[in-house]
């Protein structure tokens, strides 16, 4: 069974981004970039399925600028077998990425797609569901447990109020939640081995996909800032402030 794992290059989760002063976008020049944390969990899960003998090949895919190659190398160092870079300088929105991935799923004959539930930059939480819709596959979103057996994927999902389990006919799309696994550290020997693994570079046009954006960003702004609070010396003052100043209790 082939598993396709899409990975995204995003601003590192520890970086606090700022708006450009003219409001045209977010200033991401010279900030640290990393693999989207949910995608690391996806690569780890695919690798575990391969180690368990369920999967035969893991293909990592990243869409975007040439530097996404570094993100693919990280995926290869975790355990992916080969990479595909869909290179474009155009702004890619979830629908466009889903179309690219659909074309790749068909081209590669993947039986399972495992990807992050959301990217921490645009916070969309759409691409997996969109891919499932376009490829007419069932979806197991926000997965905290995945069991693949007998042509089906049994996915436990984190939902409001608890957990639910669904059974999906393969091929299927699974999106990862935080609790699915703890990604392994990438070791130096594996980084060296990853350099020898192949990465194919193609263009969206090669797949016949139109990536033009549907949503236009008119401006960005800082969220309203909270006025500075105070430190209270003791519990009595705290309760007094909450009762008489803030009037919330």
């Amino acid at each position: 069974m082939k598993i396709l794992v899409p990975v995204k290059r995003v601003v590192d989760y520890n970086v606090k981004v700022r708006c450009k002063s003219d409001g045209t976008g977010v200033d991401i020049a010279n900030v640290k970039m990393s693999m989207n944390p949910f995608d690391e969990i996806a690569v780890e899960e695919a690798t575990r399925l391969k180690e368990a003998g369920v999967a035969t090949e893991i293909i990592a895919v990243s869409c975007g600028v040439a530097q996404c190659q570094e993100t693919l190398r990280t995926a290869l160092a975790i355990g992916a077998d080969r990479g595909i870079l869909v290179e474009t300088d155009a702004e890619l929105q979830p629908l466009a990425v889903a179309k690219i991935l659909k074309a790749l799923v068909e081209k590669e004959g993947a039986n399972l797609v495992i990807m992050g539930k959301q990217a921490i930059d645009d916070d969309c939480n759409q691409t997996g569901q969109m891919l499932a819709a376009l490829a007419d596959m069932p979806q197991g979103t926000f997965a905290s447990k995945v069991v693949v057996e007998g042509g089906k994927a049994l996915v436990t999902r984190e939902v409001d109020g608890g957990l639910e389990t669904v059974s999906l006919n393969l091929p299927a799309v699974v999106t990862t939640d935080l609790r699915l696994n703890e990604p392994r550290y990438v070791t130096l020997p594996n980084i060296m081995k990853a350099k020898k693994k192949p990465i194919d570079t193609i263009k969206p046009e090669d797949l016949g996909v139109d990536v033009s954006p549907r949503i236009k960003m008119l401006k960005v702004s800082d969220p309203p800032s909270r006025s500075a609070g105070i430190t209270v010396p003791d519990v009595d003052t705290l309760i007094d402030k909450l009762k008489n100043e803030a009037k919330v209790i």
Binding site: D123, Q126, L218
Partner: peptide, 28 residues
């Protein structure tokens, strides 16, 4: 396209939504 998690409606086609963990508000 889908507009996720809107926090404001400016008009029938223009909305506000937070990105980057709420550190930036985008008008789209």
């Amino acid at each position: 396209a889908q507009l996720s998690d809107i926090i404001g409606v400016e008009s029938a086609d223009t909305f506000q939504r937070p990105i980057y963990a709420g550190n930036v508000i985008a008008t789209v």
